[in-house]
Computed example of a mutant assay.
Amino acid sequence: MAANRARGQRAGLTRQAVLEAALRLVDREGLKALSMRRLGAELGVEAMTLYHHVPNKTALLDGVIEQVVAEALPPQFGAATWRADLSAYAHALTSALDAHPNAVPLLLAQPAMTPRLLGTMEAVVGMLHEAGFPLPRTLDVMYSLTSFVVGHAAAQAGGVGGADSMASLDPDTYPLLVGAARESGDDAARARFDFALDALLTGFERELARG
Rank of each mutant, 00 (worst) to 15 (best):
M1T: 15
G8W: 00
G12N: 07
L13P: 13
L13K: 09
T14L: 03
R15H: 07
A17Y: 00
L19M: 09
L23G: 11
D27T: 09
D27K: 02
R28N: 14
G30D: 06
G30K: 03
L31R: 11
L34R: 04
S35V: 03
M36S: 14
M36K: 03
M36I: 05
M36W: 01
R37S: 12
E42S: 07
E42T: 10
L43C: 13
G44D: 10
E46S: 15
A47F: 01
M48Y: 07
T49M: 09
Y51N: 10
Y51L: 13
H53K: 04
V54D: 04
L61N: 06
G63R: 10
V64R: 03
V64S: 07
E66V: 05
E71L: 12
A72Q: 10
P75Q: 01
Q76T: 12
F77Q: 07
A79I: 04
W82Y: 08
A84G: 02
L86V: 12
Y89G: 06
T94F: 00
A99C: 02
A103F: 00
A103D: 08
L108N: 15
A109S: 14
T114G: 06
L117C: 04
L118I: 10
L118W: 03
M121I: 10
A123W: 05
G126S: 10
G126R: 06
G126P: 10
E130A: 15
G132T: 09
F133G: 09
P136L: 00
P136G: 02
T138K: 03
T138S: 06
S144T: 15
S144I: 02
L145N: 05
T146Q: 11
S147H: 13
V149F: 02
H152T: 14
H152K: 09
H152R: 13
A153G: 14
A154Y: 01
A154R: 00
A157K: 12
D164I: 01
M166A: 14
M166P: 01
A167N: 10
L169R: 10
P175W: 02
L176P: 01
V178P: 11
A181H: 08
S184M: 02
G185S: 06
D186L: 06
A188L: 05
A189T: 13
A189F: 02
R190Y: 01
A191I: 01
R192D: 15
D194C: 03
L197T: 11
D198H: 11
T202P: 00
T202V: 08
E205H: 11
R210D: 13
G211V: 08
G211W: 01
